[in-house]
Amino acid sequence: MAMQTTVERVDAAVPVTVMTLAGELDASNYLRLVDDVRPLYAAGARHLLLDLTDLTFISSSGLVSLYSILKVMQGEEPPDPEYGWSALHAMERGAEEGGEQNAVRIAGMRPDVAGVLQRTGLDALFPSHPDRESALAAF
């Protein structure tokens, strides 16, 4: 199923790139989404808000793209989902060092989508907020 993405810049306490995902994130588009984020990071974006208010579905492949996006935004060699191997688990290192990451936040998850992140434990990696405003205020 199709997924539309829109990108805008918002000035919060720091400049935040807001990416809105609408539709369904699944095996057909999960690699493209990571490709969409790479140029944003290359252009200087360091804080990304994923607004998932209109994301109605996420598959397990979608989890790989969320993880990869976080790696890209943290400036690390992103895992290549095609080959799947990564030499580093720097994200866990970051978590061990304490403090939640501020590179990627999520806003407006629907219960079904939140349920998938919660079941798999991926929710622990992303600060989540009920809506865009509260997420922007947290950066």
Binding site: S60, L63, V64, P79, G84, W85, S86, A87
Partner: peptide, 12 residues
């Protein structure tokens, strides 16, 4: 998987 293979894929 985590300590030795260090894969970026997950398994449920």
């Amino acid at each position: 998987l985590v300590d030795e293979l260090r894969t970026a894929l997950f398994i449920t």
